[in-house]
Design a protein around this nucleic acid. Structure first.
Lengths: 347, 347
DNA sequence: GTCCATGCCTAAATCGTTTCATCGGAGGTC
DNA sequence: GACCTCCGATGAAACGATTTAGGCATGGAC
């Protein structure tokens, strides 16, 4: 076992070196790598031995240059700090793994510039396809990607009359479910705690809330629209303080938050300021992340099928990559309200 | 503006096409790309125009094949679903962005096989370097990586007498801090809720707990070691049920959990079973993730400098990549106990 | 008018792999 | 023994960029 690691690593071994060591031609080494069944067993073993001895590592750049394709997908997430997106990513991962592709995760962190840089880089890398929860689904850079041959699937958003596949959840419906639930529980003044209007998900959920409110015949001014800088825990806390600041007769008795981070922040602020949930304020979140159920006052939330969202998106992308008769498809999942103590009162 | 997108995308344009369109040689196009100052303004503009018209996208495979290096780093995370690691990743991201490199995130999800597959693939991609929170820091595959020329920095773990850089937090100290805090609060029976012993962090924190307990002269059997299958919220809940199952006189009055996910699960189970925190059970977590402070009974936790951990790790890697006189370094940060209501009682 | 320096561009070699047409030899058939 | 078939291995030609050594004007100095 004369292991000879390229100690000083002058340059890593190439197929040529392997071929020389094994005393075969370079094409044979390649065959061992790609079509082992075409190589006789003795030769194959000799080559494999040489590869091990030399510490050969296949150069993926050269491979994909020659073949014109890579073995990777990428998911560009909107916010890696939000467990919702990491769960979506996990769904994607499973599908990618099953297809034998590796998945790169990139985080745009809600910033267009970062998103753009990631997309440009991925395009240069010639990844097979890109899944993305975009900062702005109408960004022309996305069109440019498909024009230039990189398939793109939009995750958790849709685009009108689109030339993309997309997988989303009906956020308007989700907003309705949340607010109808609060109306059913008898609330007459409700706050919608949203993030910045620039986020489509925030707009849609707010729209659903408005629709439900209007259909119940309640006066529009009693649905208080609060918008936050970002859909984060910290902003949820800040929103709580703004609610407390309202005069008692105008203060909502319930709040629907655009996501669970906001809801958890609001929950925390409410309780630590000595009020009770749901007694003084009922709270509904959105996404049903794991921490929602684990909150000490378990959070009522609108559940999205996070894993399925990711898995289905990856499947669509794989179809687009592999199937010449692929048809673009806009999948819309249906959200579901999970009622818990934060709106139900304690037993 | 005769924009001519490669509509049917027969094949994307190469430098050769750009050269032909601009009426210059191929080397000139490359100069425009890499050393624009060497090209006269008129030629440069002509070339840039041609690139735009053809929708030219530089082929990164070819570039890195020729130059022998890529513009990317990777971080292989232990658990993308744990906010602690996404925060570490964010710190890394910032440092990578500042250095003009792109960062790929990979998730091993605690599985050696996945980790191995990611590492092999990254090595083939010839990434500049790899940051990793390994399933097992003694995995020989890590040695093999550096032997073959890919720098590796270990994050949130250390390795004895190592030929790696590493950045970690003193987990033994963290365990001591947590348990000393509980002892100071007068607890005489404490549970350590750990994950599987195979996880180094879990072992070290437990060891710290034991040390603090012994030094206080308390009987070892009153530090109840509970181990869970995985350090997750669900397992935290299960641990709560096991605690309740203990006979009252042996039941701990406080629990120190190996991470915040466990602690949140335990917190939830405790409260929903009608007991109070910290009245019936005081709880200390570990990591101080954002959701710890946001829990309705804010969680006392051992804070790790998550962003600094990531940033410093990335800096070490960048130094190793760029500085020929680089010396391996083992950075150890000091954790800090953040006391909150889950151990302090309510005002 | 000659010579040289300078600025800008060209041509060719190269990176490591895959692929394809080809070739040699072993074995079977007549 | 001549011929055909296979099987396995070979070698050269790509892939698309970067790099380097040189070439060809232009213009200034003498």
């Amino acid at each position: 076992m004369a292991i000879t690691p390229a100690a000083g690593s002058p340059r890593s071994a190439s197929v040529k070196d392997v071929a020389a060591t094994a005393g075969v031609s370079l094409g044979t080494v390649s065959n061992v790598l790609n079509r082992p069944e075409r190589v006789s067993r003795t030769t194959r073993e000799r080559v494999e031995r040489a590869m091990a001895d030399l510490g050969f590592v296949r150069n993926e750049s050269a491979r994909s240059l020659r073949t014109g394709s890579t073995q990777s997908l990428a998911y560009v997430m909107l916010d890696a700090g939000n467990p919702f997106f990491t769960d979506v990513a996990q769904g994607i991962e499973l599908a990618a793994e099953a297809a034998g592709l590796s998945l790169f995760l990139c985080n745009s962190d809600g910033r267009s510039a970062r998103e753009g840089a990631h997309l440009a880089h991925l395009q240069q890398q010639r990844v097979q396809g890109i899944l993305i929860t975009p900062v702005d689904p109408d960004d022309p850079q996305l069109d440019q990607l498909i024009e230039r041959g990189t398939p793109v699937v939009i995750v958790d958003r849709t685009r009108a009359g689109s030339s993309f596949c997309s997988v989303a959840v009906d956020d308007v419906l989700g907003g309705r479910l949340a607010v109808e639930h609060l109306i059913d529980a008898g609330h007459k003044r409700v706050a919608y705690v949203g993030g910045p209007e620039s986020i489509g998900q925030v707009r849609d959920r707010g729209e659903g809330a408005r629709q439900a409110w209007a259909e119940a015949g309640l006066p529009p001014e009693d649905l208080v629209m609060l918008s936050c800088e970002a859909p984060t825990v910290a902003c949820g806390r800040a929103a709580g303080e703004r609610l407390v600041g309202l005069p008692a007769r105008r203060r909502p008795t319930a709040a629907f938050c655009a996501n669970d981070l906001l809801a958890l922040g609001l929950l925390q602020q409410t309780i630590s300021s000595g009020r009770t949930v749901p007694g003084d304020l009922a709270i509904v979140g959105y996404d049903d992340i794991e921490f929602a159920a684990a909150a000490a006052v378990p959070l009522t939330s609108v559940r999205q099928p996070r894993h399925d969202l990711g898995r289905r998106a990856a499947e669509l992308l794989l179809d687009e990559v592999g199937n010449p008769t692929h048809q673009h498809e806009q999948v819309v999942f249906t959200p579901e309200l999970i009622a818990r103590a934060s709106t139900l009162g304690r037993p």
